[in-house]
Design a protein around this nucleic acid. Sequence first.
DNA 1: TTGTGTTTTATTGCCTCC
DNA 2: GGAGGCAATAAAACACAA
Length: 351
Amino acid sequence: MAGGRVYSGAGGSSTLRVLLQNKRTEPLDSLFFSGSCNSSSPPPSFLGSRSMMSFEDVHGGNGSNKSFFRSFGVGDDVLDDDLDEYFHQPGKKRRLTVEQVQFLEKSFEVENKLEPDRKVQLAKDLGLQPRQVAIWFQNRRARWKTKQMEKDYDVLQASYNSLKADYESMRKETDKLKTEDVNWMINRSISGLKDLKFGCENPGCRRFLDHFNMVQVLSEKLLDREKEKENLEVSENSNKLSQEPPEKPIADSEGEVSKVSAVEDISSVKSDIFDSDSPRFNDGVHSNSLLEPADSSYVFEADQSDLSQDEEDNLPSYIFPKLEDVHYSDPPASSCNFGFPEDHAFWSWSY
DNA sequence: TTGTGTTTTATTGCCTCC
DNA sequence: GGAGGCAATAAAACACAA
């Protein structure tokens, strides 16, 4: 017993099960057996509570709530003779009838809290003890709360799944945009180089442009040399055919040999850099793909040793600065990074 | 028929409110 | 301090598969 609470209705000896076994009536059948059973299943036993049937406790012991049963055609003789016997079975839990539960459910829908007056009235109408009605409402509230929590959980989970899907979608979109952005920057840089030809007053930009132009000029030079070499070989071969094969090399002086070697070296460099089959060399002269960042480093890493000292000496110092004079660092205010992020160090340098 | 899981009814203990 | 609500739990009733 909690908090001095007094529960009424316990005790007694007989059961309505006995009553129904002996004196069941059609109205009672419809009351106690409808809904929860069908023709193919045996009717369940009456599931009223032991305490629910304690009329004395409900209405001062005058049995006035027998009206609930009388309304279904149960005669007073039945009630008087057997209900007492049934209503006082200890240690048994009785389920409410479908009709009682439906009645309580409707009442619960109206208001899930139970005021004392309403509780007494419901108990009177259903032939239950007020305590039973209170317990039923209490348990019903607990079930409602559990279901509500399940619904809330489902709503939250749906919301979470929706947000997660949005996140994944946005993440993919972001990755896609990043890729597009890189391509856009590359294209912008290339078109920026073209634009620079028509004027860039920024010293850094001008130097880069001069460098870029010089690379193009040198590449054209290399191509010319390649052609000269090929022509020379062709003419030599034709001479061989018409003359005795020489016993000595064509170039018998060291200087001559060195020049040929130099040409071969340069040709090899040219082949590496300007191979017409290379994706970096599209039109043979001015190639945007020359600046493709996939191998962008080579643009600035041209091995100066590939050029003859004469050629190198003839270049302005700002075009081919000494390596020790070049400082790849954070871009100065005058530097030019062509729209690339500043962490792309190769785009920004200063002397 | 029986074992097992679920649902329903009821109890207990604690708490808050008046 | 009594009344009543709530959470946790017990236990009976029920459903169902094997």
